[in-house]
Design a protein around this nucleic acid. Structure first.
Lengths: 203, 203
DNA sequence: GAGGGAAGTGGACAGCATGTCCACTTCCCT
DNA sequence: AGGGAAGTGGACATGCTGTCCACTTCCCTC
């Protein structure tokens, strides 16, 4: 029996020039398509055709539309996650020099930041998660952890379950629906802030 | 120019025997298929084949899967709506003889009733509404009106927007996800009750 | 209880999306 | 320059959607 899997995997092989070129074409085409129509209606075929490459090439790198949208969304979500962990209060934890913000304040700030992110990138979020898939993304796990922490800090019972329920109003489909119905981001944010203070505030 | 549309439409024409037979077959087959697998993966073809009828026959009556699920769900939703409007407190309004329940109580009762409905029929709800379609159903409009009313009664600002946000935790995909994750309906209901009291209670 | 027109039926068909496969091309290392 | 590996693109098989229409079944009338 021979050793088949080298245990120490070498450095990640460099990306070939043609591959890089095509990846850029794919991402540019996808961003455009997601933005200009119904993101859930964009097909792999559309993307390949718009990018000017073959289907096989597209599928080699991305197994489905969601993975492309996620690639586009990733950096934005990471930036927000960074601010939650280490940014200035009330979004970040504070604590070292200034006073630590109350959980309700932090939740309200988180809501505001998420509305901002959705305002700029709903089309990507909708392209990435349709319905139930949302709960299986890494991003959702992160938001959930954050809100669970805040709920626990506020002394709420069953903070994990409450966290899911507090994240539900940020579902991209709802946001889209509200925006299409003429609601401004400000009004949505204000209502969410009230929600945050009602649930986590005042104890 | 002749009158083409009779202004007084006559009595609804009786349903033919073969049509009625097939409708029953369709509904029975669909109920079974929705219940035993992933409701969002059930196709019109599956239903036609399981019901033992042709595609054309199926499409004649139902344009898509959602309309079939809605037909199955309708009576259950209507029953709950009836209880909300005219049932006993705290679900119904009370008022005549007993004291009228506080808005937070009524919201908690509504949550409990919805969890119960979801517990029995999530598969139908998921078959009927996938993602954004939820907000365009008549049922959603009804729930929204009800919760808006409660929020206004509790003196909350912007009750319409708050209503959407308070309904979000009842999204069928979330419920499915929570149940699949091992949560009991009781625990979900309890967390929702706490939410209801936090947002509408105590003023 | 026959007959006829309307309602209902079912399967064939065209269109479109998915995901895979593989002969060919391009790249990059030596 | 040359060769092997990585990458490419389009053809293909499969599956679902909706529509269409020749045929069947029903039920009302006489």
């Amino acid at each position: 029996m021979t050793t088949e899997l080298p245990l120490a995997d070498g450095p990640p092989p460099r990306e070939r020039a043609d591959a890089a070129r095509n990846r850029a074409k794919v991402l540019a085409a996808a961003e455009r398509l997601f933005a200009e129509g119904d993101p859930t209606a964009v097909t792999m075929d559309d993307i390949a055709r718009t990018a000017g490459i073959g289907r096989g090439t597209l599928y080699r790198r991305y197994p489905d539309r969601a993975s492309i949208a996620r690639a586009l969304l990733d950096e934005h979500e990471r930036a927000l996650q960074e601010r939650l962990l280490r940014g200035a209060p009330p979004l970040g934890p504070g604590g070292a020099d200034g006073a630590a913000p109350a959980p309700a304040e932090r939740l309200a700030a988180f809501y505001a930041a998420m509305v901002e992110l959705l305002e700029t990138h709903v089309h990507l979020v909708l392209g990435a998660e349709t319905g139930a898939a949302r709960y299986r993304t890494g991003a959702y796990a992160f938001w959930r952890l954050h809100v669970t922490h805040l709920a626990r800090e506020a002394g709420r019972p069953d903070p994990e379950v409450l966290a899911d329920q507090l994240l539900a109003p940020l579902a991209p489909e709802l946001f889209r629906h509200q925006r299409d119905g003429g609601l401004t981001p400000e009004r949505i944010t204000a209502a969410l802030a009230a929600l945050a203070h009602g649930v986590l505030g005042r104890d």
